[in-house]
Design a protein around this nucleic acid. Structure first.
Lengths: 351, 351
DNA sequence: CTGAAAGCGCTTACAG
DNA sequence: CTGAAAGCGCTTACAG
């Protein structure tokens, strides 16, 4: 039971394979009698014919394959959402995603072999994703096809890149707190030298400036972004500076802050408001009260990257890679139940 | 700057393309002078030649592509781990994974189009994964190539399938509790009609029997496996039956149970031991105390499926799909800090 | 309006 | 030990 080929369709319709190809592909500038067209289409359908994409690829030098190289596919749902965004966009263009999950670490050399494997597969383009927003050095062979970076920028700045707007996300979070009336807002930051750390701090300071509240170093702390450390840091800052709200570097840290609050008998959000970052659903939605946080646009980055690569493929002759514009995608605030006005601002109307 | 082809290598080495093909592929039963071989290899290396896999695929009728159809890629890290397991096994065999994320739901008809797209791509085999362990109806065109089911079994039982050993996982969890001395162990179950629900209950009962403790319906409750409901259910059972330990259907439910315990001023694990299921790292490792739970073997299911499909491909002539054996993969217990002996069993040695 | 033929880059009997 | 040639299933100038 081998599957039907174009020759079978031609035979059945009583035409040449040339004609079959033309009608099935709707080749422009080709006159084929309408009657012939429908004969061909019927034959194709009744044979369940689908063109062999491998043969097409060899002939047209377009494989319709897009390579996605992603670090750390397994650890968080983040990579999954990038994949989903890219995959759905790919499907809309008749493209197929081929995935290779690279070793962790920015070993450009290590990734070179993965890129080569993709290149041998004749992928039309490559999406290169890291597990969190950072600057990387690219494997040199990545220049063989159009490529875009996801959640990363390259140190040489040669490739279009799509990254989350860390500053904007932090602004949304802190402004949300400020609008609720908070002025003593602590920031529990991470201490890595990554864009998220700097960007979120910048957003925090920007909102402070907007509201004319002076930056107070005692309200800001740094630690590795893990829950136990988040707990320690939250306890320390809560004890030291009595903030009415906490802006946490990420949801895991917020989880630690929840515990610190509970230990100090601070109710959330009545006594203390908390905003996180990342929108890790499984944490944010399941914490009690559910955590208001900022979402990272992984799905959107995946689809943006795919769409961009499609444009590059269409317009490849006219521009070189670095002339393509990069994107800063918004990090929307996801409102749940962890924010309320501070005690002193609370209107005296009982709920 | 087009990439080198086999012809370029042949020219450079001063041999025919036939010879190049033979030495690079190490075709068995082919005598080629060692001196010629090294000339060819040097030429290939200096040109950076890698065979065009598309052309190879067309010629050999083996694409080296394995399709992975997965529902719900984005929601949990589960799919990511399946992908990773399959991808790493694929790489070891020189195979490449192509991913399509299917619509949620078991619409065999909807998935048929996705399978067809994979088939048009000439994938050698298909891995068909669902987002959680369940029984499904297969799209009819899935029989065109070797296929294996991941985390699912098909109602017709035609395909090899790899699923987690739900019973065994529950046994490990409950036995762990029993070994610590617990006898009043509550089970907070899910109320869906899925294998996990039935399997985990069976495992629970099995351990009870082992320890000669009679099954007590009052210690078992069902709810949808979400945190708020888990909280309600835990509170109810804790109040009603005073268990010394809780076995939770999954980690999210355990998260609700933690809150119930806190509200009742029950310390974990001193006053109450809790075991979860799923090992959702981000919850289990970040809860306080860290949650002892049972891991689902997603990575292992991915690699098992890939390896099986490779065997089917190698031995395809001799057996039909349904003669291949399915697998029940172990769900190992991951010990963290949420289990201790019950009060009455505690040795009087202070820690 | 339709078709014969070349060729994409390989592999593989087959011949020598 | 090595090579000439056919062919995988398509698309695409080109001719008629």
């Amino acid at each position: 039971m081998k599957t039907a080929g174009i020759r079978d369709v031609a035979k059945m319709a009583g035409v040449s394979v040339t004609t079959v190809s033309h009608v099935l592909n709707e080749t422009p500038h080709t006159r084929v009698a309408e009657e012939t067209r429908s004969r061909v289409r019927e034959a194709a359908k009744s044979l369940g014919y689908g063109p062999n994409r491998v043969a097409q690829a060899l002939r047209t030098r377009r494989s319709g394959l897009i390579g996605l190289l992603s670090e750390e596919i397994a650890t968080t749902p983040h990579a999954g959402r990038i994949i989903l965004g890219a995959q759905e966009a790919a499907r809309a263009h008749g493209l197929t995603l081929v995935i290779v999950s690279a070793e962790r670490g920015d070993g450009a050399a290590a990734h070179q072999a993965d890129v080569q494997a993709l290149l041998d597969r004749q992928v039309d383009a490559i999406l290169y994703a890291t597990m969190y927003h950072r600057r990387i050095t690219l494997p040199p062979n990545l220049d063989a096809v159009p490529a875009v970076l996801i959640d990363a920028t390259d140190t040489a700045g040669m490739l279009p890149a799509v990254v989350p707007d860390e500053v904007g996300g932090a602004v949304a979070a802190v402004r949300h707190l400020a609008e609720a009336g908070h002025r003593r807002i602590a920031f529990l930051n991470n201490n890595d030298d990554v864009p998220a750390t700097h960007g979120r701090l910048a957003g925090y300071r920007q909102v402070l400036a907007e509201y004319d509240v002076p930056y107070d170093g005692k309200l800001v702390g740094e630690t590795v972004s893990e829950t136990p450390e988040g707990y320690e840091l939250a306890k320390e800052i809560l004890a030291r500076s009595a903030p009415t709200a906490l802006f946490c570097y990420n949801d895991r840290m917020a989880m630690g802050a929840y515990r610190a609050a509970a230990e100090l008998s601070l109710r959330i959000p009545e006594d203390l408001s908390i905003v996180g970052f990342d929108n890790q659903e499984i944490i944010a939605a399941n914490l009690f009260p559910a955590l208001t946080t900022v979402a990272l646009p992984h799905y959107e980055m995946g689809s943006w990257a795919l769409e961009t690569v499609v444009e590059m493929l269409a317009d490849g002759e006219n521009r070189s890679d670095h002339e393509w514009v990069s994107a800063l995608l918004p990090c929307p605030l996801v409102t749940r139940d962890s924010v309320a006005p501070p005690r002193e601002f609370r209107p005296s109307v009982p709920t």
